[in-house]
């Protein structure tokens, strides 16, 4: 959690892109994939990273329903956090449109940038397809 007004370059740009349906991932010439902010491929160090469109739909690979949150999510709990597989990359996000008890592995999801009920800060979320 950061209460500073400065943006996190790369990360906030990515959230902006996700909000308009233009989320992307980075790929190096050897085909290694990653998420920004990056100057270098974390796998091989290559500097030539291309932005490629993120597949629209991912699948929940694992999840948890958190009952004891950090103060930044005090009013949001209980909430489901999931890791969803989008193919070239996986992403961690909050499942926002389902009762936490209804979340399951294998569910198809798409990105949905929402906000914390506690702080109003942007939160990377998933909604079911």
């Amino acid at each position: 959690m950061s209460d500073e007004s400065a943006r996190d370059a790369g990360f906030d740009d990515w959230l902006d892109a996700a909000e308009t349906g233009d989320a992307y991932y980075l790929e190096c010439p050897a085909g290694h994939t990653s998420l920004p902010p990056r100057r270098l491929c974390p796998t091989c160090g290559a500097a030539a990273l291309d932005e490629r469109p993120l597949p629209e739909t991912g699948e929940i690979e694992t999840f948890t329903v958190t009952h004891v949150p950090t103060p930044a999510f005090e009013d949001d709990a209980p909430y489901a956090t999931a890791i969803a597989d989008f193919g070239p990359i996986r992403v961690t996000g909050q499942v926002v449109d389902l009762d936490p008890d209804a979340v399951d592995t294998g569910l198809p999801v798409e990105l949905d940038v929402t906000s914390s009920e506690t702080t109003g800060e942007r939160v990377l979320g998933f909604k079911t397809v």
Partner: peptide
């Protein structure tokens, strides 16, 4: 709980609400 969470990736994990117990739960 907030302090322990800084062991995770602040941008991509903690800001999505992942806690330290949450990570092991995943």
């Amino acid at each position: 709980t907030e302090a322990l969470a800084i062991a995770a990736d602040e941008l991509w994990e903690v800001r999505a609400g992942m806690t330290f117990p949450g990570a092991y739960a995943l």
